[in-house]
Structure formats: structure tokens, C-alpha cells
Design a protein around this nucleic acid. Structure first.
Lengths: 199, 199
DNA sequence: ATCATTTGTTTCTTATAGGAAACTTTTCCA
DNA sequence: TGGAAAAGTTTCCTATAAGAAACAAATGAT
């Protein structure tokens, strides 16, 4: 953290017109780069970078994109703007079995921590009913990333481009949810998995 | 996903100079808005928006930010550009106990799915050694959001501004990790929790 | 079909972003 | 200390973003 930020662990300050510039300077210094070096890495001039960091210009999106890449900036933070979202300084508990139920023919989802509406990850527990492999339907597919952890039971996890993956309690998998995916319980009883979905 | 695939559920295509414009038009139409309406919502002119959508201009970051807000666009997608990140079209499995171990005096972390380096969520299992409450040290605190799920055992989860939270297997909590937080095992044996951290 | 209205595109103009170079400040070594 | 080199800022100029208005295409009503 750098000289600019007030408290040593400040949360991205909203409604600050200098937000973008501060973030970028912070990221550059974190890398220990000079304006020249950072500019070169991002393919922009050092004068431009100076002006951006000091909020003396409104850079184009393209320039910002190049900087985020060179400086390995976390992009969502750049968009922080209007007041902290409702997660700021908050927590949301769901006790076992206390989630919001959502039923489908094959799955039974229990949505967790649904009080915090502006959270970015979506955790839920699915009970996958034991059934025959032949019943497998179509791929689920949606932009983003997903993490799955098997809580109990045995199942087979399918994804496009890969061979079926047998999994049991304690196993986990992380995957691009843009790939078709799905799973079926292969054990005697229903399987229980925890999913965390992003985006 | 490779550059060749053109499925109808196409993943954000990298190295496409028209990427930004396409995303924005898509988002606008999803809302069923005209250029006029969307422009008004974002506070920009309809001609400007037209040019952005058709990639006839390189909009300023500020304009893009206003659009993302008005159109409720997922921001990280906008930055997709140079080659798909290594998660694209991939999956990464970790079998029970097969994670990368990382030891600290109090915690024992097992990092999951560490093959995919560009993933955005960081899942790990922690074993929290059973011990006395008095040993509680200092807050852990870092930008971002976190989800925690208790796999086994009993523990107390602490966060600033809230009272201690007793938790047991199956319970979960989602919180702003910018708040100080930490937990200790309160049961007979070590507690096991799954954490998923973002940002 | 004809005309009116609405939606999207293309000028046209002005304000400004971005880079080169001049200038200033800081660093650091003799 | 002083003076040179490096880092950062400001100035100046050109290319272009952004909005207004003119234009064109699509939609809809009679």
C-alpha cells in the first residue's frame, strides 16, 4: 500500500474522481516501476501516464486496458464508484439447511448467503439425485468460472473436451463454466456438492 | 476454448478489436433499450453510443464506466483481449488431500486447483487446530470477498463489528474480507473449513 | 402504397487525449 | 556540498473523442 491511501487498509473509496489515477499509481509503484518503464510495458508514453495518475486527463478505455494488463491490475476495482456496495463491511451467515431452496427435476439447489445481494460469488449446495448415467441431458453452459467441492456421495463430473471424471467426497474441481458441464450421481445415494460460481 | 470454435455460446473472443462494442450492444439489447434510452441512462449521446457499438471510436474509460453501470455489464469481460487466459476451456481437479500444502502456526492450508493460474477465485481447505480462545491473535484483513463453508468440526468465526459466530459442519458465511476476520476451533478436534476467496 | 414517427448512422465542430520535447524536481555519487 | 543523471511534470501540437444536427433506414398507422 502506498503514500496515497489514507488508512493502511482502506477499501476502494467510492465517488472519488481521482480513484482511477490512484489505483494505477499504486499498482505501478507496487511493481517498483518508473513512469518510463510502466509506459513502455503498456505501450504508452510516460507523459500520458503521468497525467493519468494525476487525474489530469480522462484516458481512453483502450489505454486503461493496456495498463491493467501491464500492471496486472484487478479490473473490477477500477469500476468502483457509487458508494460501497452492500457487501462492504458486512457478513451473511447461513446455517446448515437454512438456505433458500430451488428445485429442478435433476438437481435440488440450496442457495447460500442470499442476504448479500451485491456479492460477486454465488455459493450453493446441490443435491444430485442418484440415477442412471443414460439420463444425462444437455450441457449446462454459462459465462464465468466455477468451483465445485464434493461434500458427500459419489458422482461423475462431465465437461466438454475432457473425459468423465469420477469424484467422491473431498474432491474438487475448478473449471471454465463456458464449457458445457454437468454431473450425475453414481453412488447408491444422492450426492451433495458445494458450488461457487463467479460472474 | 480455442479460436476456432464458433459455437452459439461463444466465449468472449480474444484479440477481437470489436469486442468492446459487441459486448455493449449485446448488453443494451438485452435490456431492450434504444440508443437514445441507453445513452440517457448512461448520460451520453446516442451518436457516441452508436459509434462505440460499431467500433468507430475508442471511447474514454469514463464513458465505458458509465455504460457498464447503466447496462449492468460484467466488467471483467470487457478486458478480455489478448489471448484467452489459461482457464478458458479448461478444468483442474484436485482429489481429496491432493492439494498443495501451506503451513502456518495456527492454520494448515491445502490450496486447491493450483494448476489453473489465471483463475479468479482461490479455493482452499484449512484445518484449524483445536485450541483455547485466549490464543486468538490479530485480524486477517485483505481486499475482497470471501465465502467459508464448515466441512467438519466446530469453530467460532470472528469479524469486526459483529459478535462471535459459533459454527458447525454445514454452516457457511459470506463476508467482506476487508473487515478483520479470523476463526478458532472450539470443538474437541481440529475443524475443517473450505474457503473461497475472491480478489 | 403513403406518410409520420422512431431508431440508427454519418457528418461536422469543438474540446481534449496522447505523445514529443522542454522543463523541473529528485536522487545519488564524486 | 555540487553537478550529473534519472524521474516526474508541463507545454505544445496533432489526432481524435464526443455531442449536435443532418441524414437514412426501419417501423407503423391509416
Amino acid at each position: 500500500m502506498d503514500p496515497v491511501s489514507q488508512s493502511e487498509d482502506e477499501i476502494a473509496d467510492a465517488s472519488d474522481p481521482d480513484h482511477l489515477g490512484k489505483m494505477i499509481r499504486e499498482a505501478r509503484l507496487r511493481k517498483g516501476w518508473t513512469l518510463e518503464e510502466a509506459g513502455k510495458a503498456a505501450g504508452i508514453g510516460r507523459s500520458t501516464l503521468s497525467k493519468i495518475e494525476n487525474s489530469q486527463t480522462r484516458p481512453s478505455f483502450d489505454i486503461v486496458r493496456r495498463l491493467t494488463k501491464a500492471l496486472e491490475l484487478k479490473t473490477p476495482q477500477l469500476f468502483v464508484q457509487s458508494g460501497p456496495s452492500d457487501i462492504s463491511g458486512r457478513r451473511d451467515v447461513t446455517f446448515a439447511g437454512g438456505g433458500e431452496m430451488q428445485e429442478t427435476p435433476t438437481y435440488s439447489h440450496e442457495l447460500l448467503c442470499t442476504e448479500l445481494t451485491s456479492k460477486r460469488m454465488f455459493p450453493y449446495i446441490s443435491t444430485i439425485k442418484a440415477r442412471d448415467v443414460s439420463e444425462f441431458e444437455s450441457w449446462i453452459r454459462h459465462r464465468g468460472e466455477e468451483f465445485m467441492f464434493v461434500i458427500s456421495g459419489e458422482l461423475t463430473f462431465f465437461t466438454e473436451h475432457y473425459r468423465p471424471l469420477p469424484m467422491k467426497a473431498g474432491d474438487s474441481v475448478y473449471y471454465d463454466s463456458g464449457m458445457g458441464h454437468g454431473c450425475i450421481s453414481t453412488g447408491e445415494e444422492d450426492a451433495k456438492v458445494l458450488w461457487v460460481s463467479l460472474e
